[in-house]
Amino acid sequence: MGIELLGFQTTIASPVTLKGIGVHSGAEVSITFHPAEADAGIVFQRIQANGRVSEYKAVSSQVGNTDLCTVLGMSPATSIATIEHVMAAIYALGLDNLTIEVHGAEMPIMDGSSEPFIDAIELVGVRALAVKRRYIRIVKPVRIESGASWSEFTPYDGMRFEVEIEFDCPLIGRQSWKGDMTPSVFKRELSRARTFGFMRDVERLWAAGFALGSSLENSVVISDDNAVINVEGLRYTDEFVRHKTLDAVGDLSLAGAPFIGCYRSYRGGHKMNANALKALLSDPTAYEVVETATPRQRTRARDMVAVAVPGFAPWSA
């Protein structure tokens, strides 16, 4: 079950709740995944203390800011932050329809990866719905560049990611991850990769009111002498690029449908991912919307969602 091009939409079999802290706010937060009907999509609901509900569909047109994480909504009073690790898990497992009830301003960071969200979803199970799934099939290359960074979509029979990073840090250097994305590949090779950052940035972020919940329990931290501070070390020898790939999976989930094609990036991040998606969906000759049962059948392009242009910052949540 999942993004291996199965033909029908899915949801979860029953509700499941997770609790933790927000990596930026440091505040306690709980979220509950609820089943949803076909064509509902992924919907986030922030429940305020006064009972008011702010609701956002997980599509790029709803993205407000991605300075340090991906945020749905424009106002901090009603927005929902740090959705990328949750969305990567949802996307990788092929879930099309969920309502996510949020008591707090951001998603719980858990251990800094997608694994806790994968575990929660698998605990309750996935069920198929009697409505066909739609996909975005890439039919011609679309590429964007920004300085030394670039990213592109190209036609490919499947869903593939090829992500390369390069940091001026001997511990990271130049790393790449390439592979066809399936639920088993995501769980085995990407889901446990944690967010990371540099100790030299921590005091600046704290002073700005960010990363207040960040700790060695939910982040890989690199010291000023280029060593991993975490006692347990890295989960993968190239955990850094694997987390960047995990982020890309979450960022591209905001297209509103899974894509059939290859996504490649070099020195990318949230902004580059979002701008590449915008470039793709802005060119109706570059893609078609299809159902797997009739793969060449074009559906209405206007059913897809326009992409907002988020920002980017070095600390990769």
Rank of each mutant, 00 (worst) to 15 (best):
residue 104 G to F: 01
residue 144 I to E: 03
residue 48 Q to D: 14
residue 204 R to I: 13
residue 19 K to M: 02
residue 191 S to F: 07
residue 173 G to P: 08
residue 20 G to F: 06
residue 140 K to V: 02
residue 290 V to P: 02
residue 300 R to Y: 11
residue 156 Y to M: 00
residue 49 A to M: 12
residue 302 R to E: 09
residue 208 A to I: 10
residue 39 D to A: 05
residue 205 L to H: 01
residue 65 N to Y: 12
residue 195 T to V: 07
residue 226 N to H: 15
residue 310 P to I: 06
residue 225 D to W: 07
residue 69 C to V: 06
residue 53 V to M: 11
residue 169 C to E: 09
residue 92 A to L: 04
residue 289 V to W: 08
residue 118 I to V: 15
residue 233 G to E: 12
residue 8 F to H: 07
residue 190 L to C: 08
residue 269 G to T: 08
residue 241 V to M: 05
residue 7 G to H: 13
residue 31 I to L: 12
residue 59 V to Q: 10
residue 73 G to T: 07
residue 216 L to W: 03
residue 279 A to R: 10
residue 77 A to K: 14
residue 1 M to V: 00
residue 43 V to K: 10
residue 67 D to N: 12
residue 302 R to T: 10
residue 25 S to C: 11
residue 61 S to Q: 15
residue 80 I to D: 04
residue 59 V to F: 06
residue 160 R to V: 05
residue 185 V to S: 03
residue 223 S to T: 14
residue 281 L to H: 04
residue 151 S to D: 03
residue 279 A to Q: 09
residue 116 P to C: 14
residue 10 T to L: 01
residue 210 F to N: 02
residue 115 E to S: 11
residue 236 Y to R: 02
residue 100 I to K: 02
residue 201 D to N: 14
residue 315 W to K: 12
residue 282 S to T: 15
residue 157 D to I: 00
residue 264 R to Q: 10
residue 274 A to W: 00
residue 69 C to D: 08
residue 129 L to S: 03
residue 251 D to L: 07
residue 159 M to L: 09
residue 163 V to I: 13
residue 258 P to W: 02
residue 216 L to H: 06
residue 243 H to D: 09
residue 199 M to D: 14
residue 220 V to Y: 11
residue 218 N to R: 10
residue 16 V to D: 00
residue 207 A to T: 12
residue 31 I to W: 04
residue 235 R to P: 04
residue 247 D to G: 10
residue 220 V to I: 15
residue 73 G to C: 08
residue 304 M to R: 04
residue 208 A to F: 09
residue 266 Y to C: 05
residue 36 A to G: 03
residue 95 L to C: 04
residue 34 H to P: 01
residue 289 V to D: 07
residue 104 G to M: 03
residue 114 S to R: 10
residue 90 I to T: 00
residue 300 R to M: 15
residue 272 M to V: 08
residue 59 V to W: 04
residue 64 G to R: 05
residue 84 E to I: 02
residue 75 S to R: 15
residue 285 T to H: 14
residue 30 S to D: 14
residue 316 S to K: 15
residue 292 T to L: 14
residue 7 G to S: 07
residue 61 S to K: 14
residue 188 R to L: 13
residue 51 G to L: 15
residue 276 A to V: 05
residue 301 A to T: 15
residue 106 E to S: 10
residue 229 I to H: 10
residue 136 I to A: 01
residue 172 I to V: 11
residue 34 H to T: 06
residue 184 S to V: 11
residue 292 T to F: 13
residue 271 K to M: 11
residue 119 D to S: 15
residue 30 S to Q: 12
residue 91 Y to E: 11
residue 254 L to Q: 07
residue 267 R to N: 11
residue 194 R to C: 06
residue 204 R to Q: 12
residue 132 K to A: 12
residue 30 S to F: 07
residue 84 E to V: 10
residue 238 D to S: 07
residue 87 M to Y: 02
residue 144 I to F: 05
residue 27 A to H: 13
residue 118 I to P: 01
residue 85 H to Q: 14
residue 214 S to A: 15
residue 8 F to M: 08
residue 147 G to I: 04
residue 113 S to Y: 04
residue 312 F to G: 13
residue 113 S to R: 08
residue 142 V to D: 01
